[in-house]
């Protein structure tokens, strides 16, 4: 087989290092560092470790979900029901809590509800071939609707003290439990996407689902798994958020889905599927957290903040497009 029938083709032309330097992720890193510097100049309180630790709550819960949603978007699907999955998971935990369940049961129920919601989405998309954007807009109303029926204007409060550990606890010094979960999730999803056969299939499906199927890939199975993972991560986020707030209202995590998608897209994941990286999502989450926290320290009102985040998103997305137009 090594006879010289064909010409030698090199494995790579550009080294991985050169690629990394020119990548979207490198640009995000630079922007994040600039914002960090700007923040520390703008406010004397910014560099305080406890402040920064508090600031991390701005993104940790959303970012956990964003990792799973990144994989979904790379595969060409989307899940807009993640905020509602949190609401439903939290409601189920609240019901169990009122029935006297302890922390381990609450956690298990939170995860199970997330998985069940993910399985429902996955079934409709992968098994019945419905478009995920429509399915998850539907389940977005459905899941949260159930919470509203259960709770009305009420709220579940009085979670056990030990349950508070997930959203309020510290592992050591200023490192919160949520930050640790975020870190682990980043590593697990990074390895899953970039270092496993499963991740390779996700990219293949996102670039051309038909050809992926024609290459012997079980496309439906992969997509179903991705919805399950998204449900699971939403369940974990529900546990953290409920624990942090110490209560469940039906409006919990409202609007999460858009912030999650913003983080994913800002992280360089193509909304059309097929490309993106977990490092990018990590950086985008941190960047978003820095921006909102920095603006908060400067007493910028919430409305203005969302305008700035929106502009930032458009600017960062437009940049590479302008760049390639100038180069052509």
């Amino acid at each position: 087989m090594t006879e010289h029938l064909g010409r030698q083709i090199p494995d790579r032309l550009t080294s991985p290092l050169t690629r990394a330097l020119k990548s979207w992720e490198a640009l995000l890193l630079v922007v994040a560092v600039l914002i960090f510097i700007a923040n520390s100049l703008a406010s004397p309180y910014f560099l305080d470790p406890w402040n920064l630790s508090d600031a991390s709550f701005n993104f940790t819960e959303k970012a956990m979900i964003a990792f799973a949603v990144a994989l979904l978007i790379i595969s060409g699907e989307i899940d807009l029901s993640v905020g509602s999955i949190i609401a439903l998971s939290s409601t189920v935990m609240g019901l169990a809590m009122t029935a006297g369940a302890g922390t381990p049961v609450l956690v298990l129920l939170g995860l199970a509800t997330g998985l069940a919601c993910g399985a429902f989405n996955g079934l409709l998309v992968a098994r019945f071939g419905l478009p995920s954007i429509v399915v998850t807009i539907g389940t977005m109303s459905l899941f949260r609707g159930i919470s509203y029926i259960v709770l009305g204007d009420g709220a579940f409060t009085g979670y056990p003290a030990s349950f508070g550990w997930f959203g309020q606890g510290y592992v050591f010094w200023v490192i919160t439990v949520e930050l640790v979960i975020f870190g682990f999730a980043a590593i697990i999803f990074g390895v899953l996407l970039h270092r496993t056969n499963f991740g390779r299939m996700v990219y293949a499906i996102g670039n051309n689902a038909v050809a992926a199927r024609f290459s012997g890939i079980r496309v439906e199975r992969v997509k179903f798994t991705l919805f399950l993972l998204t449900g699971l991560m939403s369940g974990i986020a529900a546990i953290c958020l409920t624990s942090r707030l110490g209560s469940t209202r039906p409006s919990i995590a409202a609007g999460f889905e858009l912030e999650v998608v913003t983080i994913v897209v800002l992280g360089g994941v193509s909304i059309l599927g097929g490309s993106g990286s977990i490092i990018g999502v990590v950086l985008a989450a941190i960047l978003m957290g820095l921006v909102t926290f920095g603006l908060g320290l400067m007493n910028v009102p919430g409305i203005v903040m969302s305008i700035i985040v929106g502009l930032l998103l458009i600017a960062v997305i437009a940049l590479p497009r302008l760049w390639s137009m100038a180069r052509r």
Binding site: H4, G6, R7, P10, L13
Partner: peptide
């Protein structure tokens, strides 16, 4: 790819 005499700049193209 060598057996098939593929013409490409590199295999990661």
């Amino acid at each position: 790819t060598q057996r098939l005499d593929l013409r490409a700049a590199s295999l990661d193209q």
